[in-house]
């Protein structure tokens, strides 16, 4: 998945404007509203679309969109 598509997917899930979202964006702060459902939707996306199964602790360590992307990359590298 290309970076731009990854950002668009994240923007869709957190209901943010993809034009202003970047890898540096804090995804919790950027969300239209933050809730456990939104967090869960991100985990589901990372697992289903990127093959990255995150623990809750692993997810809580992530602050930015780039952190999520890095987690997805780690899975790809094996």
């Amino acid at each position: 998945m290309e970076v731009s598509q990854f950002i668009n997917e994240i923007a869709d899930i957190i209901e943010a404007d993809p034009k202003i979202l970047s890898l540096e964006s804090d995804f919790r702060e950027s969300a239209d509203f933050w809730s456990s459902l939104v967090g869960f939707a991100l985990l589901t996306f990372l697992e289903d679309q990127c093959g990255a199964v995150l623990s809750i602790d692993g997810f809580l360590e992530c602050k930015t969109v780039g952190d999520l992307y890095a987690k997805a990359q780690e899975r790809q590298r094996g």
Binding site: M1, E2, V3, D48, Q49, G51, R75, Q76
Partner: peptide, 13 residues
């Protein structure tokens, strides 16, 4: 650009 073209990711997609 990072491609996630592993078999696992493809199956999941």
């Amino acid at each position: 650009n990072i491609e996630f073209e592993t078999a696992a990711a493809e199956d999941l997609r």
